[in-house]
Amino acid sequence: MSIDLTGRTAIVTGGGAGIGAAIALTLAEAGADVAVHYANSADGAREVCARIEDMGRRALIFQADLTDPEQADALVDRVVEHFGGLDILVNNAGHLVGRAPLAETTDERWKAIMDVNVSSAFHTTRRALPHLTASSTGRVVTMSSLASENGGGAGSVGYAAAKAAVVGFTRGLAKEIAPTSTTVNAVAPGFIGDTAFHNTFTPGDAQKGIIAGIPLGRAGTPQDVADVTLFLASDLASYVTGQVIDINGGLNFR
């Protein structure tokens, strides 16, 4: 059975690189028009939009700091104005920010971690909800992490806490808006290779050690995450809500 998202509009936050780019392209391949948000990856976002347009879909690029509610509101408003509605929101934007023991984590860093991973999703979703619930196929997909389950690697207490908060946000919102038929689910990637995240924060030897412990014998890819997100955004998942789908090759079981 093929997945057809023709006629639907999606926002993918953090869509200019890595997992977000793969999600944006995968939704477009299934027929969706896609708004690609970015914070800093302007070149990548432009390339993703060009590829979406080459598929014959409509694309919109938008830069915003989603930790700022006014900028998040402007993003959603612009997308709805441009496309005439909104059906799918993928809250992919997030960041580790930096590794540090909790005792050395400043108030500023803690707030930055929570803002970029949790507040950004809150701001964007809040503005998008009236449009998503007005759609007969409204979908919200949030980005958690294996860190929400196992506490993450060294120096990532704040990140693990933020991604656990994303899970609570997902489940609470799923209950709240279930009567509208709009679904809310999360994906929780484990080790996804060839991304700026791990290339920046995980040394090469540590990456090899992690991969050696993965039962399926390989690192995950951005496409692995995109494929699960596509399922959650589709009609096939119309009876799935409030769930967290682990994508970790068997490295951890919930």
Rank of each mutant, 00 (worst) to 15 (best):
M1F: 03
D4I: 14
T6S: 14
I11E: 08
T13E: 10
A17K: 15
G18V: 10
T26S: 04
L27E: 05
G44Q: 15
R51A: 13
R51D: 06
I52N: 03
I52G: 00
R57E: 02
A64N: 06
E70N: 14
E81M: 01
H82A: 14
L86C: 12
L86T: 14
L86N: 13
N91R: 12
N92Y: 01
A93K: 08
D107G: 15
R109K: 12
M114Q: 09
M114Y: 08
D115F: 09
N117S: 00
S119P: 00
S119M: 14
T125M: 03
T125R: 07
R126H: 12
R126Q: 14
T133P: 00
S135Y: 01
M143N: 11
L146S: 03
A147F: 03
G155H: 05
Y159P: 15
T170F: 01
R171E: 08
R171N: 06
A178G: 08
T180G: 10
G193L: 07
D194I: 05
T195R: 01
F197Y: 02
N199K: 15
T200S: 10
P203D: 08
G204P: 08
Q207S: 02
K208T: 13
K208L: 14
I211G: 09
A212F: 02
R218W: 13
A219E: 02
G220E: 06
V228K: 05
L230Y: 00
A237K: 05
A237M: 12
Y239W: 15
V244F: 04
N248R: 03
L251G: 01
